[in-house]
């Protein structure tokens, strides 16, 4: 089909302009915007210990909050230059896509579906389900629970998948579902259940709060990755946040990350091996 020259040129110019548009947008990355503004706008929640919750004196704290502080520190050399946007879990993705936050760190499980809507950073934690036992209870560890078979009762949070989740690890155990977190712990404490099954991070936090009264059964399953997330289409900003998180787990800010890990999960991390980068092993 012969297109008149002038129309052709017009089409070409339009096509070039459309193609150039993203490049123009890339010129001004979120990174520059944040640096100019002088503080980071971090989206996170305020109702889930040890991830993001309020201290007695009403300060936001937790592992997610510390990830934001790591990013702020790499931006400004000051982890406190953060404006928090507290949001419910449902608001995580909308607040990113409508630009109400620069980055969200809110125990966000990486899934393929979500990755189509926002850009995930590298993971900063691997979550999984664990089992918590009483320190002076009848069962020593996961093996003992498994051997005991159907005489074991496990308390879990009420959920459609609760039975399946527990049976994936303990096929014969009976499952008691409770409506809130405090009740699953109370069931264990009062002897109505022999073990609590829930996120390992929650268990770790609870054990840190109540030292020597409970122990981890030493088995984890149902892995999922927690990542921060930023808006799609800004590779520069994504790279920056990735770099900040990566260096906190393997490089100059390792102590910041390790201190935070110790505070919220009660475990000491070994520094990454010096020499050949651990990432390529």
């Amino acid at each position: 089909m012969a297109i008149p020259f002038r129309a052709h040129a017009l089409l070409l110019t339009t096509a070039m302009m459309v193609a150039a548009a993203p490049a123009v947008a890339q010129d001004k990355s979120k990174l520059d915007e944040v640096l100019e503004r002088g503080h980071l706008v971090l989206g996170t929640g305020s109702t889930n210990a040890p991830w993001h919750f309020k201290s007695v004196d009403d300060k936001l704290q937790g592992f997610d909050v510390d990830m934001g502080r790591i990013i702020a520190k790499s931006l400004f050399g000051d982890p406190d230059k953060i404006e928090y946007v507290t949001q419910s879990s449902d608001a995580r993705i909308p607040n990113i896509t409508t630009g109400k936050v620069d980055v969200t760190c809110q125990f966000m499980t990486v899934t393929g579906e979500r990755a189509q809507q926002v850009a995930f950073t590298i993971p900063y934690y691997r979550e999984g389900v664990g089992l918590m036992l009483k320190a002076d209870g009848d069962y020593a560890d996961y093996e003992a629970l498994k051997e005991a078979g159907s005489s074991v009762t496990v308390s879990v949070l009420q959920n459609v998948y609760a039975e399946d989740m527990v049976h994936a690890a303990l096929p014969e155990a009976s499952v008691d579902q409770y409506e809130s977190v405090d009740l699953i712990y109370q069931a264990l404490e009062s002897g109505r259940s022999d073990a609590v099954a829930t996120d390992q991070s929650s268990l770790a936090w609870y054990m840190t709060q109540n030292p020597d009264r409970y122990r981890d059964a030493g088995y984890g399953w149902n892995p999922q990755s927690y990542s921060c997330a930023v808006a799609r289409g800004d590779q520069d900003w994504l790279n920056f946040v990735n770099t900040a998180l990566h260096e906190a787990m393997t490089g100059v800010e390792f102590n910041f990350y390790a201190d935070s890990f110790k505070t919220w999960f009660g475990k000491d991390l070994q520094p990454p091996q010096i020499g050949f980068p651990v990432e390529y092993k």
Partner: peptide, 23 residues
């Protein structure tokens, strides 16, 4: 509370997440 306004219900949830006294 869904859009992050720290009214009484969200405040209550914040307190519960710290001390687990939900009821």
């Amino acid at each position: 509370s869904v859009i992050g306004v720290a009214e009484l219900l969200l405040r209550t949830q914040e307190i519960i997440s710290r001390n687990f006294m939900s009821l």
